[in-house]
Every structure is written in structure tokens, then in C-alpha cells.
């Protein structure tokens, strides 16, 4: 089945979708907004409720949605390419779990309430500790299988620690806050969140995009790739550290938004001719589109309490995951 579309068409399509998604992300919300007028007023330096809603709520939320979605899509595609596994996603190397644990600890110790940036900083720190631990567990050679096993162990440990923190949380308020935060959301995020996440995300994107041709060579297996001149340990490091930086900071500012990194590369793969290298930029764009649309959807669903973004992506993603396993099983037997 060859349905590869020419790159210019694919990027025009994804680009247009992104513009539509960004427009909706800024235009849709509880408070109705005359977008053009408000934008003009904001540029003109006026300060009223409408311009504040636009510049301090909608814009940072939309931008964060774009950054988080792009990071999740990009890292999912890169990890699937590195690990040769279509079921891999950013969580698999323990990065999400440890970033979440870091953030939860920030809640628990009260740092999150005391210092506004302590929460995302703790998340990023957790992600980098995860990378260090994965390498310590997997050893100097760090084979692909060892990395996956280390990630599984790390996820289990981070989950247990998170449960312990919840168990020991004395105030029910902190408990609820942690639970809600873990569900993943972009609501009420500010420019400060964008400022914290952006540098780490850019670092991660650059690292990962720099090895996109190596990922294509890796589709022939590690030995053949090495014989073609791929520096395997550098590629592994670039993908894992890059994912830690990008996904770690994404989790740190938005909580856990699952399945985007799994689903997006899957949908895009046939469109780029299954090339793991070409998949990367396309997945980043599509990840941004998906998260932005999902974030618009949670604002439109008429529930009493706003639906959490992570809950929505999980509701869409879980059945897709099941379908994938079903299809893979059929291919394997």
C-alpha cells in the first residue's frame, strides 16, 4: 500500500491545519471574543478584559499547545524509529514518569505553591534524572533492549514513588491538585510556562532533528547502520536526551498528555513513505495540530467541569492502541 504524498502537499496540508487549529485555539473559549478587534486593541496597547483574555490566557495556552503537541509527536516518532517499535512512545524510556514524579514532589513539598516556576523546573529535572538513570541501568554500551528494560523499570519505580507521595499527602487539597495535574491540561497556563519550556524544547528538537537521516539508516538494523557510518551511541543519546528535554518540559508544564506520541507517527507514517527520517518534522506538525484541536474540543464539550486534555487524548488514544495491537498480532501470526 503506497499512499506517500509529495512533501510539499503534505506540509501545505499540515501547515494549513495548524493555522486553522491556532485560530480556533485563540478564538474559542468561555468568554466570547471579537478576535480581530481585540487583536488590534492589544497591539494598540489597550488594556481591557478582552485584550487580557487574549494576550494572557488564550495566546500562551495556544502556543503551549503547539509546543507540547509538536514535542510529543516528534519524540514519539524519533523513539519509534530508534527502538524499531511501532508501540514505543515518549513514556517508554521513563521520561514522562520521572518528570511527573518531579512535579508531584514539587506539589508535595509546597514548593509549587511558593515559587511559580518550581513546578516545571522540578519536572524537567526529573526528566534529566531519568536519562541519567536509564544510562546507569543500561550500561555503557546501552543496547536498545537494555534501554527499553531500564525504561520499564524506571516507570515502575516512578509510579510507586508517585503513589507513595499521594499516600503521604496530608492535605486533601494537595492530593486533589496532584491528581488533577496528572490528568494533563493546558488551562490557566501563562507566558512564564512558555518561557520555562521553550528553551528545553528547542534543545530537544534540535538534537532529535539532527539525527533524522541516521534514523532512516537504522531501519536496516543496528549492525548495517553502523557499517554505513552511523554513530549509534550518539544517535541513541541524541534521541533519548532530546526526548527528555522536550517531553520532560512538556510534562512539566502540562501534566501527562498520553497517546499523542504514539498515535501521530502512526497516522503519518504511510504518508511519508514509511521513512523514519521524513516522519520527524511531519509528526511534529501533526502533533501540534492534534493537541490544539483536542484543547479546543475540551473547551467545547458541555460538561459541568472542564474536561482535562489528557483525559480526552487518552479516551481517543486507548482504542487506537488496542486497534494497533490487534493489527500487529494479525501481522505476526
Amino acid at each position: 500500500m503506497r499512499i506517500a504524498v509529495p512533501p510539499w502537499l503534505l506540509y501545505t496540508l499540515l501547515g494549513s491545519l495548524l493555522v486553522v487549529a491556532l485560530y480556533l485555539a485563540v478564538a474559542v473559549g468561555r468568554a466570547p471574543l471579537a478576535l480581530l478587534d481585540t487583536l488590534q486593541a492589544a497591539i494598540g496597547g489597550e488594556d481591557n478584559v478582552a485584550t487580557l483574555v487574549l494576550t494572557e490566557l488564550r495566546l500562551p495556552r495556544a502556543l503551549l499547545g503547539l509546543l507540547v503537541g509538536a514535542s510529543l509527536g516528534l519524540c514519539g516518532a524519533a523513539l519509534q524509529g530508534l527502538l524499531h517499535n511501532p508501540l514505543a512512545e515518549p513514556g517508554i524510556i521513563g521520561v514522562s514518569g520521572c518528570a511527573a514524579l518531579g512535579a508531584v514532589l514539587a506539589f508535595y513539598t509546597g514548593m509549587a505553591a511558593a515559587i511559580p516556576l518550581a513546578l516545571p523546573a522540578a519536572g524537567v529535572l526529573g526528566a534529566f534524572i531519568a536519562v541519567a538513570l536509564v544510562y546507569a541501568l543500561a550500561g555503557r554500551q546501552a543496547s536498545t533492549l537494555a534501554i527499553i528494560l531500564a525504561g520499564v523499570a524506571l516507570n515502575a519505580a516512578a509510579g510507586a514513588m508517585t503513589a507513595l507521595v499521594l499516600n503521604l499527602a496530608e492535605s486533601p487539597f494537595a492530593f486533589l491538585e496532584i491528581i488533577f495535574w496528572q490528568m494533563g491540561s493546558l488551562a490557566d497556563r501563562s507566558w512564564a510556562h512558555v518561557g520555562v519550556a521553550l528553551p528545553f524544547m528547542l534543545l530537544g528538537w534540535v538534537l532529535i532533528l539532527s539525527v533524522r537521516r541516521d534514523l532512516a539508516a537504522l531501519s536496516l538494523g543496528e549492525e548495517t547502520a553502523a557499517s554505513l557510518g552511523v554513530n549509534l551511541s550518539w544517535v541513541r543519546f541524541a534521541v533519548i536526551a532530546g526526548s527528555a528535554a522536550a517531553v520532560g518540559s512538556a510534562v512539566a508544564v502540562s501534566g501527562v498528555i498520553g497517546f499523542v506520541g504514539l498515535v501521530v507517527p502512526h497516522l503519518l507514517r504511510p504518508l511519508v513513505g514509511y521513512d523514519p527520517g521524513r516522519l520527524l518534522p511531519a509528526s511534529a506538525l501533526a502533533g501540534a495540530v492534534l493537541v490544539l484541536f483536542a484543547d479546543v474540543a475540551v473547551r467545547l464539550v458541555p460538561t459541568g467541569v472542564e474536561l482535562k486534555l489528557g483525559v480526552l487524548t487518552a479516551l481517543i488514544g486507548a482504542p487506537f492502541f488496542l486497534y494497533l495491537i490487534f493489527r500487529l498480532r494479525r501481522e505476526l501470526t
Binding site: R2, H84, L218, S219, L220, G221, E223, T224, S227, R269, G273, Y274, D275, P276
Partner: peptide
């Protein structure tokens, strides 16, 4: 140039 035994292609590449 090196051609190993049983090269497996991990994605349905052309």
C-alpha cells in the same frame, strides 16, 4: 561496504 546476513527491514520501505 558491508552486507550482513539476514538483513531485516524494520518498516515497510520500498
Amino acid at each position: 561496504a558491508f552486507l550482513r546476513q539476514n538483513t531485516r527491514v524494520h518498516w515497510p520501505l520500498a
